[in-house]
Simulated scan of single mutants.
Amino acid sequence: MPRRQIVFETGRYYHIYNRGHNRQAIFFNRDNYIHFLRLINKYLIETNSADIIAYCLMPNHYHLLVYLRADHFSKSMQRLSVSYVKAFNKSYQRVGTLFQRRFQAILVDRDEYLFQLTRYIHLNPVKAKLVDKAEDWEFSSYREYVDLRPGSLPKCEEVRSHFNSANNYRRFVERSIQTASIQHLMFDE
């Protein structure tokens, strides 16, 4: 497999994403989502590889907005993915790959991009018509952002402080996705 073209730098934000092979589901039930979130905690947070700024797990893909803390981030992501695939395959008596390719990464190099990306991530389930409102999707960090759920996984303080309150962030997200300047961020679901 060719080397990744992006060079990870500590102290920078990255949009990390991946999807199922042939766009197939990577999460079949609530336990799958919960297990993946636990692995994020184990391999990224507990190893001090990255802070999770925002996340959304969808049936056939995931999005993570991370702030890199250590040079071993890529190795930690690899361990997370391998651990999840092994557990998934064992649980469903299957073999082979689960993800389409290695995880993808985009450098988030501007504050405005960072804020728009959190909105994009949190609106993914609405865009996919899985729920009517972002707060109805259990497997994203949106509920923490708008004070509907206490949580320790996402570190949303920096983004939320830009909006001065959870309600202001909610209003920002609830604006029509068509008005957002994030068309170039769209992940091909």
Rank of each mutant, 00 (worst) to 15 (best):
Q116V: 13
R69W: 02
D109Y: 07
V82I: 15
Y84L: 05
F103M: 07
Q100S: 12
T97F: 04
S81C: 05
L98W: 00
L80V: 02
A87L: 03
V108E: 04
L107D: 10
V82A: 07
A105S: 14
M77V: 08
S76L: 06
S91Y: 04
Y84R: 01
A70M: 06
L107T: 06
A105E: 01
S83Y: 01
E112D: 15
V85K: 03
A70D: 14
N89Q: 09
R79D: 15
S76R: 11
F99H: 04
R101F: 07
A70N: 13
A105C: 12
K90P: 01
L80R: 06
L98E: 07
I121N: 07
A87I: 00
Q78E: 11
F88T: 00
R79M: 12
H122C: 09
Q116A: 13
R102G: 12
A105K: 04
S91L: 12
F99G: 01
L117A: 08
L114E: 10
L114R: 12
R69D: 10
E112N: 14
V108H: 07
A87V: 01
L114P: 09
M77Y: 06
R69G: 14
Y67C: 14
Y67N: 15
V95K: 08
Y67M: 13
F103S: 08
R119G: 12
L123D: 11
V66E: 09
L65S: 05
I106T: 04
Q100W: 02
E112P: 04
L65D: 04
F103G: 06
G96D: 03
E112T: 14
E112S: 15
V108I: 15
L80W: 01
R110N: 15
D109F: 13
K86V: 03
R119D: 13
R102C: 07
K86W: 01
Q116H: 15
S83M: 00
K90G: 10
M77Q: 05
H122Q: 11
Q78F: 06
